[in-house]
């Protein structure tokens, strides 16, 4: 039971108290009931129909609406949609790969930079800290558009920067890498079944810029709580800096970094605005993630029934991801449970 039970209350107060939590939950569930759960159930119903633009006016009352059973789901899973370059399993694998590879880069980079900045006696520490926070401040909408322009093949800053470097080594031709439009994967074996074009690497670079500063902030906070005595004792025992890093810093940072990594994973998994602005899922849908494809199904292709089935699938995938990450971070535990 809750620890909040007043000790001198009569029994009647306890039974009305049993209802109190539900009373506190009421506003959220009323609002979510109308604008989250009702639309979800609606999506579920629509996902069994051939809902199209002509049905938009009357919704489920539309006389020309046909129930087609599981056809939308079968179409999605077997690439039967009238959409080019759409294979559900490939997009699902790519989506997980995209989120995982991002986190794998951001977390160690954030930790290493935090340790670097933590070096005693480093000059200009304050200035570096202030600069390193900037990517957290710029909205993803602007980040993605700016990086898209940086990776432009003709006028982009990245190719201009590389041109300056190769010219320094005596080359005369300007660099013209078609970062965002070339389909051929530079490392074909990297993700079997899902080719990773140059756009993937461009997005990894851009999202790296966006992702590591947050991890550095979390790691710096955790570094502060490591007692200095541990390093001094290790010094006396003759441990090298590298040994100290692996045997003291890494294990003691773990409790803070694992939840941060899970948070980063869910952010990257659904990074709608960034992916949409940067490549729009292209070229040939090779950098599409689940949410950008769902948006495309509604906004451009107007396949509402299929989009509904797709949303239901995203919901199922999201629930599975949530239950797994919840195991790791224990986000739904109440305060009193630990």
């Amino acid at each position: 039971m809750t620890t909040l039970i007043p000790i001198n209350k009569p029994k009647k107060a306890n039974s009305s108290k049993a209802l109190l939590p539900y009373f506190y939950l009421l506003p959220t569930f009323v609002v979510m009931g109308i604008i989250t759960f009702y639309p979800l159930v609606y999506q579920l119903v629509v996902s069994f129909t051939d809902f199209q633009t002509k049905d938009l006016r009357l919704g489920l009352n539309s006389p020309v609406l046909n129930f087609i059973g599981l056809k939308n789901y079968i179409d999605i899973l077997t690439a039967g949609l009238p959409v080019q370059n759409f294979e559900f399993v490939r997009i699902l694998i790519y989506n997980f790969w995209w989120a995982i590879t991002n986190v794998i880069l951001h977390v160690p980079a954030g930790v290493i930079i935090a340790v670097l900045l933590n070096a005693e006696g480093l000059w200009f520490k304050k200035i570096y800290r202030a600069i390193y926070i900037l990517p957290v401040v710029v909205p993803p909408l602007v980040v993605a558009t700016v990086w898209r322009n940086i990776f432009d093949d003709q006028y982009g800053a990245m190719n201009q920067f590389l041109t300056t470097i190769v010219q320094f080594f005596g080359a005369t031709d300007p660099v013209r890498i078609r970062w965002l439009t070339e389909y051929a994967p530079p490392i074909p074996w990297l993700l079997p079944g899902g080719p990773l074009p140059k756009a993937y690497y461009a997005m990894m670079i851009a999202n790296f810029w966006l992702g590591w500063p947050f991890m550095t902030v979390v790691a710096t906070g955790a570094l502060q709580s490591i007692p200095r005595d541990l390093y001094e004792a290790a010094d006396i025992d003759g441990a090298t800096g590298v040994q100290q890093f692996w045997n003291i810093t890494v294990p003691l940072l773990r409790p803070a970094m694992i939840p941060a990594a899970v948070y980063g994973f869910t952010l990257s998994f659904n990074l709608f605005a960034f992916v949409f602005f940067m490549t729009g899922g292209g070229p040939a849908r090779s950098t599409e993630i689940l949410v950008t494809f769902a948006y495309d199904l509604v906004r451009n292709l107007r396949l509402y029934g299929a989009a509904a089935a797709f949303s239901v699938i995203i919901f199922v995938v999201g629930t599975i991801v949530f239950l797994i990450t919840n195991r790791i971070t224990r986000a739904t535990e109440s305060y009193t449970e630990n």
């Binding site: 909040l4 869910t266 709608f272 509604v298 919901f315 239950l323």
Partner: peptide, 28 residues
């Protein structure tokens, strides 16, 4: 702060939409 019946279930109901961007519910 409270412990009550269906607590875990209700919390999963509230938190799962976090992983599902609003765009997914745009049509309904």
């Amino acid at each position: 702060r409270f412990k009550f019946k269906l607590r875990q279930v209700l919390m999963v109901l509230v938190f799962v939409p976090l992983l599902m961007p609003a765009v997914g519910l745009a049509t309904p």
